[in-house]
Design a protein around this nucleic acid. Structure first.
Lengths: 141, 141
DNA sequence: CTAAATGCAAATTATTTGCTCCATC
DNA sequence: GATGGAGCAAATAATTTGCATTTAG
């Protein structure tokens, strides 16, 4: 999904904002666009190295930060381990099973309903979730 | 709330399980019981030092771990910073305002409703929340 | 040419662990 | 007196930062 053109389009947007287009950035973006799920920085670096060895972790962290500030990518925490990254378009709310660690995503419509429930109850709307919800899947319940 | 007797009762429970009662543990528990809100380990250590100087952070961490394994205390993550600790009885689900950082708690009844919504939707029940929900308070919305 | 990005090493932060010594049971 | 706990220092793990060097625009 989202061919190499998507990568180039994103790079162009970065250039427009005064950012620079480098081989490293292209490689990182390519991997992110290939991914239809979230990735840890570690895995991300691994995949990036397949196409461009020697890209440094700090480069990846810094670029992810840049993407996040442009609202093109975000990270979520599923548990105590390293954060998971993905393109913003893939953003969802996650539930992690406390038993087996299985991860599922919450239907956005449901989330919207909860948000309005919460607004009625304590005056808070739900925002984009930054941490996973804890749950129990059918098998572990 | 929950006088010093509560502390002694807890200590007794620990002793029954083969654990030992020390001045450090009494001090830590006392502070936890005084608290009607969650505390970071840092603050906790600070308050503990008011009654018993020189208690080491690692002692606090280890005892909290013990309490958690006995289901007497838990920690939650409100954001990227250090975890917050509290006695299990005080457990609630939290929402943190993405704008101002204000923290509120979610009505347990509401949470139960959401849990059954989620069960219908994807077969996950909600468990005790380990991470805060992200939200927006009325002022920041 | 000049500002932005990279690579690398060193710093941070919160938490954990190994070990020796002390104190509770 | 046996063993669990305390204190301290050193180890982790994920992420951040300072700085000298490279490179895109």
């Amino acid at each position: 999904m989202a061919g190499p053109d998507a990568v180039e389009r994103t790079l162009a947007a970065i250039r427009r904002r005064g950012g620079r287009v480098t081989d490293q950035r292209r490689a990182i973006l390519t991997v992110l666009f290939e991914q239809d799920d979230h990735v840890s920085v570690d895995d991300l670096v691994g995949r990036v190295h397949d196409r461009l060895p020697d890209v440094h972790v700090s480069t990846v962290y810094r670029f992810l930060e840049t993407l996040e500030s442009m609202h093109l990518a975000t990270h979520v925490h599923l548990g105590h381990e390293a954060a998971m990254w993905h393109l913003s378009e893939h953003h969802r709310a996650h539930v992690v099973c406390a038993g087996c660690g299985k991860v599922a995503s919450v239907d956005p419509a449901l989330l919207a309903q909860w948000s309005s429930d919460l607004l009625d109850s304590i005056g808070f709307a739900l925002a984009e979730q930054h941490f996973a919800l804890a749950g129990l899947c059918r098998e572990c319940a």
